[in-house]
Each structure stands twice: as C-alpha cells, then as structure tokens.
Design a protein around this nucleic acid. Structure first.
Lengths: 116, 116
DNA sequence: CCTCTCGTACGATAGTCATCGTAGTACGGC
DNA sequence: GCCGTACTACGATGACTATCGTACGAGAGG
C-alpha cells in the first residue's frame, strides 16, 4: 500500500503569502472563533473539533472552523475520522510580528475584566 | 438662547469600559476603515472627514466613520461645519496594550509587501 | 458486513453590512 | 437674509454571514 500519508484527505489552506490582515482580523472578530483561537493558543498539539464544547450545532461549528482556516489562522489536518486544529503561529508571526500575542493578551484582559 | 457650548452638536461615543475587542477588530477588518485609521495614526490633531479622499460616496464615508466611532476606535467632534476625527489611542492602549501599534505595523508591512 | 462517531455538504432563513442616491440640517461667510 | 460647504438621515439594494436541520461520507471497531 505504501500510502505515504496515513490518512490523507486534504484541506485547502492559503499559502503564507496569501494571508490578508483584513481576513485575519475579520476571522477574529467573532466571539466564538476568538474562543477557539484562545483555546488553541494554549496547546502545542492540535485539538479536534469535537474537543470544543461550543453552544452551536455541528454544522455551525464546521462553518467557523472553515472561516478560520480560509483566513489562514489555523491549520486543519485529518487524523483518522477526527480533524486536528492548530494555530498557524509561525506564519502569522512572520507576516504580522507580535500581532497574535497582542490579540490573545487583549482577549484575556477583556475576559478578566468582563467575565470576572 | 445661551447655547453655552460653542458648537455643541454632540456625537455618541462608547465609554472606555464599553469598548469591545470584537467590535474593534471588526471595525479594523475593512480595508477602507483601516486606511482611515492608518492615516489618523500619523496625526496629532484630528482630521476632517473631507480630508480623506476615499473611493466611495459621502454617505458611505459617513457610514464608515460611524462604525469606527461606535466601536470606540475614533473620537469625533464637531468644529463648526466640519468634524474632526482622532484616534482614541489612550483608551485603546489602556484596554488592549500594544494592540493598536501591532495592528498598524502589520498593516504597514502588508502594504509594503503588496503595494510595492 | 454493520454500526458508531466525527465531520461535511447542501439548502433555507433571518440578520447584518457596504454601497448608493436623494433630501435635509448645521454652520460660516457674503 | 441668502448661499455654499460639510456632514447626516432615510430608504433601497445586493452581498455576505451565522445559524439551523437533514442527509451524506469516511474511518475505526465489532
């Protein structure tokens, strides 16, 4: 079989050079997607979609993950029947140095300020 | 009849504590509004709406300035028949330290990278 | 093979948004 | 008082978005 890739359904991701600041900011301007990104930021390994307990249906969840992927914020890879999601930290830091960290910090501060 | 304030049509602005990160990111996720903010960032004094030569009609222009104001990104004050626009740097820096600078830097880098 | 879980695709819907044109208001100057 | 400039308000419109439900596909395991 020598199917080099273990389970290789592939997803379309924008190349680093195609990532747009407007797209990234728009992707992050939704509370649900910001929640996903914040949780992802704390993990070295990717997290499956089903790990997140979002207050929406699976279809809506799929939609938000796709928006994040198409904006270049996250990378998605199939692993068996699950899908692993990870931040594209290297790409974002290369394009927009320090931006992601400042956004995450801002989100944490706001959560502290509002959420208690 | 003793209209105390010199020219006091007043605009509604959100208080500092009411500024939301999602709102700010959304406001900045439009290229036209990002252009306005970038130009404003270089000025100490406010700029009038008509100073900007935007490729849209005046109504649309008014709309974008209002989105920025209601998100808490800019402050607008009447000065005679004109309206002065200025960044709310202090408020944004207090709420989200470093965020505005990183965003402006990211926008400048992207403009360099794409625009030449 | 059957079935379970995980995620996708498609269609529908209600809401928001960027844009315009026209008409109107506020202020300053003549 | 009249006119011009600067911005606003309102209504319309076409595009996009977040949400859902249902139906489907792909892999793991009995």
């Amino acid at each position: 079989m020598t199917t080099a890739a273990p389970s290789a359904r592939s997803l379309a991701h924008p190349a680093r050079a195609d990532i747009r600041l407007e797209g990234v900011l728009h992707a992050l301007s939704d509370p649900l997607r910001m929640l996903i990104v914040r949780e992802l930021a704390g993990e070295k390994e990717g997290l499956t979609c089903s790990h997140f307990e979002l207050p929406v249906t699976k279809s809506t969840s799929t939609h938000h993950f796709r928006v994040l992927r198409e904006a270049g914020v996250i990378q998605q890879n199939y692993r068996g029947t699950a899908k692993l999601n990870a931040l594209r930290r290297d790409d974002l830091d290369a394009l927009f140095p320090g931006l992601l960290d400042r956004v995450l910090d801002a989100a944490a501060r706001q959560a502290d300020r509002l959420g208690g």
